[in-house]
Design a binder for these strands. Structure first.
Lengths: 227, 227
DNA sequence: AAATGCATAAATGTTGACATTTCATTGAAA
DNA sequence: TTTCAATGAAATGTCAACATTTATGCATTT
């Protein structure tokens, strides 16, 4: 099974207790340490983490905003359940947002930022050769996509993806071995995306990214049973 | 100036105090009753609404998730400021999400739901003739777009748009007369969108919606000074 | 006059207790 | 045996007080 340290989110001890709780719970949900569908009892969790229910409830409200938990008034919160349907909807949403993001990035990214993209996919290439891996390391894949999204300079898209979509996709991939990014095409596609950005060709960048995500979606759709 | 009752969000007295506060504050922010950039003092607001700070803070966390307020630890929350940049980014995001939504809707909407679309644009047409208006009534415009988005049957897109994008766009349009939807093209474009859905043509639906939103964005870009 | 530092006030963060609703259990009735 | 109602326990919602940090204002110094 995967290692907790693999997770990007670096739980950097935040200034407030409620922010720390948010990070802790987010990671626990993504890794499956707290299983899907689990009822999040405030009283139990308050005891477990040795905090009062106030900050805990605020953390739950934030996790709600990240789509990681569902809350029903007077009944409490449950960890979201990743149905096949939800996963495919996530990828459709990601396709729309990220293809737009890369089109913007092709215009807005600085050459320095493009250099960083190069370094990231070179690292991917190196890691795969050394580890004779058939998969792009998840962490590096996230970094690549987040760099592109940030490159769009569109804060609304950035927040939607990083705050409300990627966490759920990380959760899905972390808890499903088969969902990891295949190397065969992914690295090639990453190179194509960087090329399009480098050419300052937003349309090429857009269709390339769209195809990249559609491919991922198709792989998942094939390998995923009903659920 | 506009009337508060014009606002769609029907503050239906929710089960919990914190949910009611969320709705009340959301509407107050959208209408500008609480101005952009205003510091939201917890102590003052608790007195004003005669509630304790607990539920109030939870409401603030939720408004944060709706992108209506910005929160800085140890410093408090401020109402978001709608810069020209943010507005244009909102429309870019909307373009990506809503064009994908309508493509899905063209496949997934039931004929009954399509009928409802027809009724809505017929009502728009009628209202404009009767009121000799040069603008599609904002409420009706929102209803139309929300029906399309719901028709996509994609909960992720639906939540992103309705929960985190539309509120900000409503806020912008409510507080800027010039930002209202012009009738000249909008109604025609709405009819084109419905036609494409009716034809079950996702590609046509997508490009039609994209153009519709790009037009709106262009109108705003022209009429908006620097800011 | 401007800048620095201290003391006070006020705001946010956190806690524990109270209120109300929901859930589980038990017992009675059909 | 099954269903329903009542009772008690536990959970969520709310409140008021305490703790800690930030902001304000005044005095002092350069």
């Amino acid at each position: 099974m995967n290692d907790f340290a693999t997770l990007s989110s670096v739980t950097h001890s935040s200034s407030t207790l409620s922010a720390e709780l948010t990070n802790t719970l987010r990671d626990a949900i993504i890794t499956g340490e707290i299983a899907q569908g689990t009822k999040l009892s405030e009283t139990k969790m308050a005891k477990e983490f040795d905090v009062s229910r106030g900050p805990l409830r605020e953390a739950l409200r934030r996790l709600e905003g990240m789509n990681l938990i569902m809350h029903i008034p007077q009944q409490g919160a449950r960890v979201v359940t990743l149905s096949r349907e939800l996963i495919l909807q996530l990828y459709d949403t990601r396709e729309a947002l990220e293809s737009k993001a890369v089109a913007l990035a092709a215009v807005k990214m600085t050459s320095q930022e493009i250099d960083e993209l190069h370094r990231e996919i070179d690292a991917q290439s190196k890691q795969m050769r050394e580890n004779s891996g058939a998969f792009v390391p998840a962490e590096s894949d996230y970094r690549f996509h987040e760099m592109v999204v940030r490159g769009s300079k569109n804060k609304v898209i950035e927040r939607a993806l990083i705050h409300e979509i990627y966490n759920l996709i990380k959760m899905f991939r972390y808890q499903n071995e088969f969902a990891n990014t295949s190397s065969t095409n992914s690295l090639v596609e990453h190179r194509q995306i960087v090329y399009a950005i480098e050419q300052r060709d937003p349309i090429l960048a857009e269709v390339t990214m769209k195809r990249h995500i559609v491919h991922a979606r198709e792989r998942i759709e094939r390998r995923m049973s009903s659920n």
